Amino acid sequence: MKRRLVTPLPALLLLPLLFLLLFLLLFLSGCSTTPPDRPAGSDRSSGPAPSSSAPFTATDSGWIQLMTPMSEQAGQLLAMASTHESAPPLASWATALAKEHRTELAQLRQLLRRMGLPDTNVHEGHDMPGMVTDADLDRARRLTGADFDGFVRQEIRAHLEQSGRVSRSESRAGGSQEAKRLAARIADSRAEQLKTLSSLDE
């Protein structure tokens, strides 16, 4: 006795089954889009959401919180040098640079307030590159003559190099246009200030 061959269902009969399966998959996936900890009818905009258009970023905050104490501490050493019995070219340069740093510090603190950050030295006690520390200021007070002048040149050069470096980085990688513009101006100023300092060493 011959075995009967089972003829496969025509393709036209399989299409409705495929469409039904696809519909069920889409329906079930759509029902699962609501997070389990949020009610289905809750307002999704009620909580804070990150935005690429935020005015300030963590990079901006890190830069401003580093630059503010750097400028303040260096300004104190420059003010000391401007009234110290230093070589006239160094004293004159320190006086002009101290004035620039006071203007810069006012701009940094204004931006700090706009960012809602406290005007405190979050790096106090840290041995940060380019930072004139309280210990450095105490040492400068005990130095005289050429030793004092050499120490000021050394510390201010390190300050100008490091603050210029981090400001250039902020001008490229920061999020706030306001902060990036200020950082670019500071970086350009640092390059000019380093040239002037180098001319004093000649």
Rank of each mutant, 00 (worst) to 15 (best):
L18P: 00
R141M: 10
S71I: 03
I186N: 02
R172S: 11
G145P: 09
E104Y: 10
L97Y: 01
A96W: 02
R185Q: 14
L117W: 05
S189W: 00
L18S: 05
S167R: 04
A11V: 13
A187F: 06
T34S: 14
S53T: 14
D136Q: 01
R139H: 12
A96H: 08
R181H: 11
T83L: 06
S52E: 15
E155V: 07
E124I: 04
P39H: 09
L90S: 08
K180G: 05
L90T: 11
L112F: 01
S176L: 13
A183K: 07
T59M: 06
A191F: 03
D136T: 05
T68L: 11
D149V: 04
D201W: 00
A94K: 01
L12E: 07
A11D: 04
R153F: 09
D147T: 09
G47M: 13
D60P: 00
E85D: 13
Q177T: 13
D37Q: 13
L26E: 06
M67Q: 08
E202I: 05
E72H: 09
T7H: 06
D60M: 05
A79N: 15
P88H: 14
L21C: 04
T7D: 04
L105E: 10
S176K: 07
D147V: 03
L22R: 05
S29G: 07
A40G: 15
G125N: 02
S32H: 10
A58Q: 13
Q110L: 12
A11Y: 07
S171T: 08
G164V: 03
A87V: 09
A183Q: 09
R113G: 03
M80F: 10
A135H: 02
T133C: 04
V132R: 07
A94T: 07
R44M: 10
R4K: 13
E170N: 02
T83I: 06
P8I: 15
I64K: 03
G150I: 03
T144L: 00
L18D: 01
L26G: 12
A11I: 12
G174S: 06
L18W: 07
A11K: 07
G30A: 15
F56Q: 04
F23Y: 10
A187K: 06
H126I: 08
P36C: 03
E161M: 11
S52K: 14
S61D: 10
S61R: 12
R109E: 15
S82V: 04
H101C: 02
L66M: 10
C31A: 13
D43I: 03
L90G: 04
S52P: 08
D201V: 12
A106M: 10
L112S: 11
W93T: 02
T68V: 11
L17A: 11
